[in-house]
């Protein structure tokens, strides 16, 4: 069961809200100014959040309804694998936007295999970064 982190009511229809999820520029305006994202299913993204680089891939993208990202924290000995779900639902007054995370709680549910694959890819990528760091440290100064 995803853990709902936060939900908000917006006085605009889902089509108007989705515009702010539909392009990298729009996402940078509210999600994070340093976001880099290849906005299609399977595309990679990365941004800086609360002192940590977050990276992953776009797992689902359903216009006016949902954007789902795998969520990997870089920089530790291992990464925290999870999903970030941004879901839009029409309401009488506009749109309800829900942000939620599911980590290993997503095991066995639709989309979970994609999370595992994204996690494995992320873990691989992080090892590449560690190797790069080690090379720089060995050759540096």
């Amino acid at each position: 069961m995803p853990a709902v982190v936060r939900a908000i009511e917006i006085q605009a229809p889902p089509s108007a809200v989705w515009k702010w999820l539909a392009t990298p520029d729009a996402l940078r305006r509210w999600l994070s100014p340093n976001l880099e994202i290849d906005l299609r299913v399977g595309g990679a993204y990365r941004f800086f959040n609360e002192g940590t680089w977050i990276s992953g891939a776009v797992l689902e993208m359903v216009p006016e309804s949902a954007l789902v990202l795998s969520w990997l924290e870089e920089g530790g000995d291992w990464v925290h694998p999870a999903r970030l779900l941004i879901e839009l639902a029409p309401t009488a007054g506009g749109t309800r936007v829900t942000l939620s995370h599911d980590g290993f709680a997503g095991i066995g549910k639709a989309g979970w295999p994609g999370t595992v694959q994204a996690y494995e890819r992320g873990a691989d990528r992080h090892q590449v970064l560690e190797r790069l760091r080690d090379l720089v440290a060995a050759g540096g100064a």
């Binding site: 853990a3 982190v5 936060r6 939900a7 908000i8 917006i10 006085q11 605009a12 108007a16 809200v17 515009k19 702010w20 729009a26 305006r29 509210w30 999600l31 994070s32 959040n49 609360e50 925290h80 999870a82 749109t95 936007v97 942000l99 995370h101 599911d102 980590g103 290993f104 709680a105």
Partner: peptide, 25 residues
């Protein structure tokens, strides 16, 4: 078990959603 980890992001998400609302409205 995930709750304490999620709590770290709660303030950030509150701000992000508030920004989204301002833009869309």
């Amino acid at each position: 078990a995930l709750v304490p980890w999620l709590a770290r992001y709660a303030p950030y998400w509150a701000d992000a959603l508030a920004r989204l609302r301002v833009l869309a409205e």
